[in-house]
């Protein structure tokens, strides 16, 4: 009887731990893997100012504000990782930081 299948599933679900975590009320979180594309980390010393990252960024996140250096306006970023991929000196890395919500826009500027 196929109705029995769903009943068995429901009982099995009752007896096992839930798959969701309570991140707001209890602060639990799920670990992210190594290749995760989070907040950008910019190594200013290594950057040579070739501006290839700005050329390949689809959203206009990367701005050339001073000579041979860039800055990132993260509120425009879509985390595609094209900049990290194309940088010849590996000056751009994408970290595992995923919670970057803030009320102050200046906190989203990576220099």
């Amino acid at each position: 009887m196929r109705l029995g299948y769903m009943f068995k599933e429901a009982v099995r679900a009752l007896l096992s731990r839930p798959v969701t975590v309570q991140s707001v009320t209890k602060g639990e979180s799920v670990p992210v893997p190594e290749r995760y594309r989070g907040m950008i980390e910019y190594d200013r010393e290594a950057c040579i100012g070739c501006l290839m990252c700005g050329k390949t960024c689809p959203t206009g996140t990367i701005l050339n504000t001073e000579a041979h250096k860039v800055e990132f306006r993260m509120d425009r970023c879509v985390f595609c990782g094209a900049c990290a991929d194309i940088c010849p000196k590996d000056a751009i890395k994408m970290s595992s930081k995923s919670e970057i919500i803030t009320r102050d826009r200046k906190q989203l500027l990576v220099k």
Binding site: A10, P18, V21, Q22
Partner: peptide
């Protein structure tokens, strides 16, 4: 209802 769906509820 939530626990039967593997949620916390």
């Amino acid at each position: 209802h939530a626990r039967m769906q593997r949620r916390v509820g």
